[in-house]
Each structure stands twice: as C-alpha cells, then as structure tokens.
Design a protein around this nucleic acid. Structure first.
Lengths: 342, 342
DNA sequence: GGGATTTGCTAAATCCTTTTAGCAGGTGAC
DNA sequence: GTCACCTGCTAAAAGGATTTAGCAAATCCC
C-alpha cells in the first residue's frame, strides 16, 4: 500500500497497479506503444494515476532529463507598456514551447541585475532574453561560458545575437509627421535618453535625417539627453524655459518614461506652450489622451519577442548578428482594441 | 581529473580537492564548523570551487532537499500600475527570502488561468499569491489538496486567507473629496466594475456612505457597472450622453482600466463637459496629468504584498481570515518620486 | 600502556524519475 | 526437438547533491 500522508510517487503508483515503476513511467510518458506494453496495463496505470492524484515530481524529472524547462527574461521593470508587452509576449511564447517563463526586474540596479543573471544561470535556464540591462556584454559572456543561449533586445552593445527596433527609421518617420506642415524655420527639440547609448544615438540620427529631408539644418536642433527618469525630463524642460530660451514648437520625446516627466512639466506650463506639437518614441494609452497634439510610436513588442524565439528555435540568424524590427507610428488611438481588451 | 567538456559536479570538485563529496558538500553549505572539518581543507575546497567554476546543480539540490524554492504569483496582466506594482514587490519579497519568483499572467482567460495554476502546483511552489483571478476558490482548493500555502489579494471570494484593500474606506474618502464644496444638488456617477463582485460592491457602498454623509440621497446616484474594459467604459459614457441625460458633474471611476475608457470618451467630448470633477479608484502617472480635476487613489501594493508574505512567514493571521490594507488618496502627484525613479 | 575522547573525514543511503539492456515464457517454423 | 522470434515486462543504473552514522587515527588522562 502507498505510504499514507505522503504524496504518491511513481513507486506507489506502480505498486498499486501491480507493475514496476519502469512500466508506469513508460505508460505515463506515452512511450508505451514502442515498448510493447499491454494496453490493459496502460489503461490500469492511467486510471490509477488519476484516482491517486499522482503528479510526477518535476525536480526528479528535470534532474534525470537534465532539462530545466525554464526560459528567463530580465527587464528593468514592468511599469510601462513596452516592458509589460515584452513580458506578456515572452510568457506566451514560452508556454507555447512548454517552457516556464522566469521574468525578473532589475529596477535598474546593477547589483540586482548581477544577482538575477546569476540566478538564471544557476537555474540553467534554456534561453535568456535581456532587455534594458546595463551590462549585456558581461551577462552574454557568462551565458556563453555556461552554454546558455542568450539574446539582447534593443541592446546590440552586447556580444551575442540582438533583436532591435528600427530606431533610426522609427525616429525618422516620427519626425516627419512631427514637422509636417510646419514652417521651415520651426525649431525642434529632442528630449530624453542617454548619449552614446545605441538606441538613443540611432534615434537622434533618424531625427536629424528627417529634419534634413525637410530642408532644415539638422545641427540647429537642440538635443537634450537627460536620461530616462521622469524627474530629469521635467527638470530639463524647466531649465530650458528658465534659461530664457524660446521653447521649440516641436518636441520629440525619447521613451515614454521621459514623456512622463514632460507631461508633468506640461501640466504646470500649458499656458506658456501654445501650438506645441509633440512626438514620442513609445506609446501609452493615457499619454495618447493628453490634449496636446501627440504623435506616438508603438514598438512591435510581439515581433521583437517572436524573433528572439525564432533564433532560439534555430531557424534564425547566426550568433553576433542583429535583426531589425520596424516600429509603427500610431495613427488612430481611439480605434477599438487600441489599448487591448481587459 | 575532472571529466573535461562537462560542467564540474561535486564529485569532480571533491576529487580535485582530494576529499570526498560529503566533505565538499559540508564545506560549501557552511555546515562545516559543526562537522569538524579542518579549516585548511575547507579553504582548499572553496578555492577549487572558485577556480573550477563549480556551480551546484539546482535540480539535484532541490530534489534532495525536497524544496522548490519557488514562489508563484498569478495576475491578469502587467499593463497597469496596480498589477505591475504587485509584481515588483512580489519579486522583492521573494528574493528577500531566497525564493525565486514565478510570475504569470492569465490575460483574463480562464483556460490559461487553469493551466498556470496547474503548472504552479506541479512545480510545487512553496507559496502562491492570486490576484485578479476568476476562480480563486477552485485554485485555493487545489492548493490545499497539494499542501501549498495560498493567498488571495483583493479576492475574498476564495476559501483561503485574503489580503484586501480597504475598498469601502477608500471609495468613501475618494467620494468625500470628490463632492467637497459642491452644491448639495450635484449628482454623482459611479462608473466601472462588476456588480456582485466583492471589490466593486464594497466601493459602491463606500461611495454611497460618503454621499449620505454629505446630506445627499445615495439612492439617487447613478451606478454604471460596465465591467473593466476601456471600450465598455467609453461606450457606457456615450450611452448616457446619447440618452439625453445630463451628465453628472462628479464621477467616481472604478479602476484605472475603466478610467482609460473614460479618458478616451473625454478626449472627444471635453467641450460638452465643463466643470467636470473626477475621482479614480487607482492611480496612473499619465492619467494624473490629464487637464481634468482628477482625484486618484493609490492602492498600497507594497503593504498588500508584505502582508501576504507575513502570513506565509507564519507571523500573521489564521486561515480563512481577511486582512484589510488601507489605500491612500493621492494629494500631490508632482512630488518627487511620485512615479518612481526610472 | 591502556581506555576514553576527540579529530577529521567518508561510505552509503536518499530524494524520484527515466531509460537501457535484457529476462522469462510462449509461439511458430521446419 | 531445436532455433528463432515475439510479447510483456522489469532490474538496475544514472542523474547530482545532502546528510547520517560511524570509522580510523591521533590525543589525552592517570
């Protein structure tokens, strides 16, 4: 009889069915056709597994099979649509492959980031995606050493395979719309992000390209890379105003996080900013409702994640390469389903 | 010599150090003081572990110790501050206890929810938190059967321990502020949520309490529980307007998700809605920047999660009880750090 | 010097599942 | 009768770490 009070093991199941654990295992794992198990026996085992409430011990299973069945994702946080979207699609793709998603946020703290990476590697995740990490190259190296497949999202600074949004093209398209119909002498401002950071530089480039296209002098545009915190973006705007400069009529805000700071600033200075036109390299449903003419861009998180998994599945590019995913300028925010059904 | 090309096991480490695996294990797990291991030996093992890059196989370890070291959280999605906040604090509390957080989203799909619960139980998570699930009672029962500790957040419909926001008090305070200074004949509208759902009913109750307090007839207030989708909230507003009714001057929106729909409606009808005053049972940084007089409430996600873990730690209430956590009406959105540093 | 104690370490069991190699008994062919 | 083959199943190893019980050698005490 099965030891009472304990969770039944495969031994208990086998004993109850009058077979060996080997047989029970073969039956449960579906390999019994190839192993000439009598259908009656199989049926008996299956029935008993049900009635005993037998659940295989996943740790023993994982040990024996030498598979963790884990897929890891590291993001800075979950507090905006971009990262939330990455997380949700990552979950879906993981489940589709029978992997368990292990999502963790660094809060942009380098120590936490290091710890999370260590944990992921110690757990021998079968696949690791890095988004918004500070030291992708270092983690890439650790993964390589541990034999773990690793992809960087929007972080081609690393040494592994990368999937990135078309930052240049996106910023260019956004800027084209931003400047459309404005007189040639209209000034433009680029706000947010970090200088020398891959994504920011590419966006600045796209921004300048569009300005040049429209006959403007791209070098005249003001570039204020104040980082990603709302606080900093808000203060940067204030500093420009306090400096006595006339604020440009057109602003391209780099990332929704900086836009949060811009919105806070705008809230206090709406009267000083007539006819302001704004574009944002990211999207948020509430931000889209602000009564400023705002053109937003949605990064294609679904495709970004899909390309990561395609590489993992082995059908994609070789190591060290970069895959570029286009972004979409949001035309109509109010269309049904724009914000996703809840 | 260690088998080359493979990850070193504790056997390899022991062999290299000239000891037995038992000794190596004792050294690595710190139990060596009690086991009279020679400090020189311990030092040698530690050194070699470092230089060989030895990492214990977590699956073997978990099997032997019969611990999964996993803590599970199930949420509907990550696309608003409430759930994002729950997730982030859950991660932090898990890490503080040496647990690995396993966070998964149902997308409000009952089948996914069931699958996630099954996975969590199959993985034998040591602790499971349910937030915004459709069938908490069923999952509670499964957990009980499997011997897994389980807590419901804002879902006392379940059979286990629950931690809830003070929905009644929160809605009451919110309504007090919403109606403050308005003439007694001002009508009020409650928008969003689901009838007969615990949280919604408690909030309606608080809403009515505050109306009665201020000498208004609570039964006159319009209650429009249109669910949680932005789409539905937007349409509900439109229907009221189309119905020829005068829109009340004061609206309490139940949840940020419904507020998203309200904001979309407002965007198209700002002119029709002078002097509108709005309150929202939830908070979002962008929503707080809309040029409508909006009073928002922040649920105390940090405390909600902290209380869950306190119960898990065994220092808290008995099973079946409900713990109530107050919420905070947001007074000043623009204070530094209000949106969290990014 | 001999019994008692301490020191430093190890053998072996254990956790639970999966999988390979092969056993015993029966059937069919000639 | 013998050989080959099939059927249905099982024994046992493997996977890697932890932990208990206990061994051998050294030290101590009188």
């Amino acid at each position: 009889m099965a030891r009472t009070g304990r969770k039944p093991t495969i031994k208990d199941l086998a004993q109850a069915a009058g077979t060996s654990p080997a047989t029970a295992s073969l039956v449960l794992n579906g390999g019994w056709r190839n192993h000439r198990i009598n259908p009656d026996t199989a049926e008996r085992v299956l029935q008993l597994a049900q009635s005993l409430g037998y659940r295989p011990n996943q740790r023993a299973r994982a040990l024996r099979l030498n598979r963790s069945s884990l897929a890891g994702l590291i993001v800075p946080h979950h507090r905006n649509r971009f990262f939330a979207g990455l997380t949700e699609h990552f979950e879906a793709e993981s489940h589709a492959r029978g992997l368990i998603p292990l999502v963790a946020s660094t809060q942009r703290d380098a120590r936490i980031e290091q710890k999370l990476a260590d944990t992921m590697i110690a757990q021998e995740v079968e696949f690791l995606v890095l988004a918004g990490t500070e030291e992708p190259a270092r983690i890439n190296a650790l993964c390589r050493e541990a034999g773990i497949r690793c992809v960087n999202v929007d972080l081609p600074g690393g040494t592994g395979f990368s999937v990135v949004t078309d930052n240049h093209g996106g910023a260019r398209d956004l800027t084209r719309r931003l400047m459309a119909g404005l007189p040639p002498e209209t000034g433009a401002l680029f706000l947010g992000g970090r200088r020398n950071e891959y994504a920011t530089e590419a966006r600045i480039d796209g921004f300048r390209t569009a300005l040049a296209e429209s006959g403007r002098d791209p070098d005249v545009a003001a570039i204020h890379c104040c980082g990603y915190s709302p606080q900093a973006a808000c203060e940067a705007m204030g500093a420009i105003l306090d400096g006595g400069a006339t604020l440009p009529k057109a602003i391209l805000v780099n990332s929704i996080t900086a836009f949060e700071g811009f919105a806070r600033f705008w809230q206090g200075h709406a009267a000083d900013l007539p006819d302001l036109r704004v574009a944002c390299f990211d999207w948020d449903p509430f931000a889209a409702c602000l009564p400023i003419e705002t053109i937003m861009l949605r990064q294609d998180v679904e495709t970004l994640i899909a390309r990561c998994f395609a590489w993992f599945d082995g059908t994609a590019l070789r190591d060290g390469e970069i895959e570029v995913v286009p972004a979409k300028v949001v035309v109509d925010d109010t269309r049904p389903g724009a914000t996703g059904a809840l």
